[in-house]
């Protein structure tokens, strides 16, 4: 894969704009264009309300109501139907939401396993082994069988990170993935993500308010009032 010295482009946004009409029309995303190379670890920073999460939802293909073009892994995903996008997300994207989102009826382990079971690439036994590995990576292996609802906020967030990693996605997106973590754990997650980018050549884009965190990533994208600076 990595035959050329220049890395292929994994995320390519071309003039992405989005308008909210509530209550008055205003441009949340204003012609945003940028590219991210394979294996890069990028952080997205900016004041609260500047549109970081909104941009991330567009990049993650969850939000399809925008203008402009989005290419992921060289594929033009703009215009894909919902089911095709779902399959694409399942296989190629990992996502950690701003507010920790786990399925409350399932154990931590099951939460991590579900996207892999859906993908169906490995047997259930293999998936369980792999899910345990991911949980170990974020230091949650001891809580594997605990019900997701009974975990603390930071623990839930770490399980969500493990879940984002389970299918070895091409792109990992995080909306303040360390927002609920203490300094120590936050740095652990940072190291994990850095390693995934460097060793596995997975592309990572995270929104963060933590200046220190941002400075340790490969590249910082600065947003202001819906524009990329």
């Amino acid at each position: 894969m990595q035959t050329t010295t220049s890395h292929p482009i994994v995320i390519e946004a071309q003039g992405i704009s989005k308008t909210f009409f509530d209550p008055n029309p205003f441009l949340v995303l204003d012609h945003i264009s940028f590219q991210v190379e394979k294996g890069a670890f990028v952080s997205l920073v900016g004041k609260s309300g500047c549109g970081k999460s909104t941009l991330l939802y567009v990049l993650s293909t969850l939000d399809t109501e925008y203008e402009g073009k989005l290419r992921l892994g060289g594929e033009l995903v703009t215009g894909f139907d919902q089911d095709r996008l779902a399959r694409f997300r399942n296989e190629h994207l990992g996502f950690v939401f701003q507010f920790h989102f786990l399925l409350p009826e399932f154990s931590a382990l099951e939460n991590v396993m579900l996207p892999a079971l859906k993908l169906g690439k490995y047997s259930a036994e293999e998936i369980e082994v792999r899910a345990m590995e991911k949980l170990r990576l974020v230091g949650m292996e001891d809580f594997a069988l605990k019900n997701a609802m009974k975990l603390s906020g930071g623990q839930q967030q770490r399980v969500a990170i493990a879940r984002a990693l389970i299918n070895d996605p091409m792109v990992i997106m995080g909306d303040e993935p360390t927002g609920n973590l203490d300094k120590k754990n936050s740095l652990i997650v940072l190291d994990i993500l850095k390693e995934l980018a460097a060793v596995n050549q997975q592309t990572i884009i995270t929104v963060t308010h933590d200046q220190e965190f941002a400075e340790r990533t490969d590249r910082i994208l600065q947003m202001e009032d819906g524009k990329l600076l």
């Binding site: 779902a86 399942n90 989102f101």
Partner: peptide, 12 residues
Amino acid sequence: DIAILKATGFES
């Protein structure tokens, strides 16, 4: 739950 399932790749 539905939102999570959809975000993690479950089809309609």
